[in-house]
């Protein structure tokens, strides 16, 4: 799973500390399941950006699966 990468083209900076966002291998956990993927994260504080299409698309469908709906 670590070969999955969700890096939107963006010039956004961290909303918390204003630093640049850079790709980072991140563990995403839900209901005891961990998925590893590359996401943009703040170089300074580590805040991770989850793109909206990922949250509303793949992540939403995975949540439904894990909730056994």
């Amino acid at each position: 799973m670590s070969d999955l990468s969700f890096l939107p083209e963006t010039n956004w900076r961290c909303g918390k500390c204003g630093e640049k966002l850079t790709p980072r291998i991140t563990n995403v956990e839900y209901l005891g399941n961990t998925f590893t993927m590359e996401l943009l994260a703040c170089e300074k504080c580590g805040l991770v950006l989850i793109p909206e299409d990922l949250a509303r698309g793949r992540m939403f469908e995975v949540e439904q699966l894990l909730e056994d709906k």
Binding site: M1, L4, N33, F35, M37, G57, R58, E61, V62, L65, L66, D68
Partner: peptide
């Protein structure tokens, strides 16, 4: 099985 389904969703976009 659920975990495999989740991996497929992440990889392909949806089942």
């Amino acid at each position: 099985l659920t975990r495999l389904a989740a991996k497929l969703v992440f990889t392909f976009g949806s089942l």
